[in-house]
Each structure stands twice: as structure tokens, then as C-alpha cells.
Amino acid sequence: MQPVFVTQKDYADLLAGNCEDEIMQELTNKKIILSHDGEDEDVLSWVRKQVPQPSISLCYFILSERCNLACKYCFLGNNSERRKLFSTNDMSREVADRAIDFFVRQLNFSGIDFEKNASQIIFFGGEPLINFEILEYVAQRINELRSKIPVLMSCEMSVITNGTLLTKERIIKLNDLGVTVNISIDGSTKEANEMRVDIAGNEVFDRLIAVLDLYKELHIKPSLSVSLSEKTIKDLPGLLSLMEKYDIKGLGYNILLCSDNYQLPDEYYEKASKFIIDSFKEFRPLGIYEDRIMRKLNSFAHSQIHFSDCGATAGGQLVFAPDGRVGICHEMLADKENFVTTVNDTTFNAKNNPLWQEWASLTPINCDDCIKCEALGICGGGCPVNARYKNPAKGLHVVDERSCVHAKTTLRFLIEDLYNIASGKTQG
């Protein structure tokens, strides 16, 4: 479906039943007016048949569950009593080798053409750089295997790090290995970063700026992972100045999650969504990519259904815990919920595993509560774990209200943006 822009008079005529033929035809072509009874049901039935089945294309290597920080909004809960749930044993070389083998098997089962599509490895934690030796080992191993194993030919590797353990030597090594570095920083001031603290409660902002200075000195560009704290979304100019200073060309925004330790006001999601849109307006002329809104824009501009905004609910993701257990969602790391097998399981196939099939069905397209939503096509849903936290009775099969606000707000912006472009052209 694509929007059709009519005048208020045309709209009044439409409601009165005497609409111009040209407009009527356009509204019918764009499926805004049904051409026959049952057309909506036909379309929905067809779209539901297109929901992708589990096909693994990415994995998380949890190199260490330990973290040297205790950020106040940590969605893993690695900042509280839950901290004792996390293992203190880091991933070994033996587990890493078996995890690579396990991942390759799933890539081969997936049916995806990895000569055209990139498989993806994300090094994660805890703080993954605590176990830098194994990160280096896995990255070297993947690079050695590229020419021998087709599904790894274009494998992309990235690390999500709090940045505090990056040194000049490590920055150069990661760059040489082809590992994209995403540094968690929430803005250009101490205030914007006040949620990011070490175990003793000390703020780490100054240490992050020192690391970014190292990157600048080495002429290497990191990406940023920006969690949208309540202070962050009040200071877009500050974030823009930080990005300009360090020549940042890519970043991802994280809309915060609620937990027992961290609650957010109801109006937060609306404000965060507006911040993402305001950022996009600034980034667009500069050629700076922000992941979250680009997924919505791609869906809108290409009339493609965005089935899932999450690797796990796309049925496309594996998570390797340091002890070799294999799960589907890294947010469940502390309790190891849904870690259902191990790297030693040579018979596992995600495509026919009930858990991966269930998660792949968690798209809003299959959710009856979402069917009448105007943003259904571009939404992709949110995080089932966050949704369950807000509404435990329904389990994982419940709407993540964060994604509702974000999707609807973004859709309104995209429609207005398209209108401004199209109408500006005719006026010009």
C-alpha cells in the first residue's frame, strides 16, 4: 500500500459518494479502497504466507558475561542483584571452535545464498573485550575460512563494546581483522552519559572521549551505539557535534527497556521516537546512517513488508554463551532461558526446531492485536522479552508497546515527508 494525497474537497466528495473517477481509480490501485469484498482478507492471507521461516544468518558470540561497568539502564540486568546470575567463566578456544562449526552448519541449512548475502557475527557480552584473546582468535579463524567455506565468504564481524578497554594496539588489531567496532556512548556530555558507570559508580565519559581521540589520531572511524537516555534525547545538537568532531558516519539508536531496576515515564517512548526522526532529518543530508529509521524508510519507500525488527523474531539468530550453550535471544543470557542446546549438538537444525519456529512467528503480521494498525507494514514489532515484562500473563505473544509508538510516529513522518517532496515538486 502506498499513500494517495487528495485535497480536503476531494475527500469530502469521496465521503459524499461523488468522487472523481481518476481519484477513485488511484485509491483502488493503491488498495485504499477495496475492489471487492474479501480483498483485505486475501491480502492478509497472502502476506502471512510470506512470513520467513527460521533461517540462520547471524550469531552472537558472548565472549564473556562479565562486565567492568554497571550501567544503570543495563537491559541484561548486569548492574544489580542479578549480576550474580552471570557466569564468571569466559569462552574458551574449544567452545569457540565448536561454535564456529555449529554456526557454519546452520548457515548451510538456511538456504540463503551467502555469495549475495552477508552472514554476520557479533561479539557481545558482558563486555566482550574482557576476553580479547578469543575475539582475536575467532576473527582470525573466520578470515582463514573465508576462501574455504562459501557461507563465510562475505561474513561481517562487529563488536559491541563499552569502549573502556580499547587501546591503540587493540584498535589497530580490530581494524586489521575487519571487525567493525561499535562504541556505546550516549551523547557529548557527562550529563547525557550519566547512566554509564563502572562497578564503583564512577562515570566513564572521560575515558570514552580519550578512546575516540585515539580513533581520530589513527584515522579510523568507529560506529556508535547510542542508548536514548532521557538526557540524551534532550541534546541532539550535542550528539551532532560529537559525530562531526570524530567523523562518525554510522550509528544505531537503542530505545531503552524497562526492568525491575529501571523504569521509564510513559511519555518517554513518544519523545524518543521524535528524537530519532529529528536526527534523521539532520543525518540525511550528511549521509549518516541510523539503523532503526532506515529499516522503516526502506520498507516504506519500497512497499516491502518489514516482518521483523529483531534477529531473534526473524528466526535468524543464534546466541553462543561462554559455556557453549546455544540460545535464541541474548536478552535471556542471565537466566539462560531458551538456551536449548549446546555447541556439541551436531544434529541441531534451527529450521525445524520448535523454539526457532515459534520465535519466527512473532511478527506483528501474525498478531491479531496489530491487524488494524496503520503502521503494520513497516513495524516489524519490538522485543518480546520487553513486552512480556510489561504484560507477563501473555508470555512472549504480546505487543511491545515501545514499537507501537515508534512505528506509528515514524509512519506519520514518512507520509508527511513524501507529501512535502511530491507537493514541492509540483509547486516548484
Binding site: Q2, P3, T7, R284, Y289, M294, L297, I421, A422, T426
Partner: peptide, 20 residues
């Protein structure tokens, strides 16, 4: 009625190339 062309959708990308 405002006519929307394919080029209008492309323009939404600005200086961004088309395809945490």
C-alpha cells in the same frame, strides 16, 4: 490530487544510499 512518482521515494533518501 498530488501525483507521487518513484523519484519522490528516492528523494526521501537524500544523500543516503538506497539499500546496538
Amino acid at each position: 490530487m498530488v501525483q507521487v512518482e518513484k523519484e519522490d521515494y528516492k528523494e526521501m533518501y537524500g544523500n543516503l544510499d538506497e539499500p546496538c
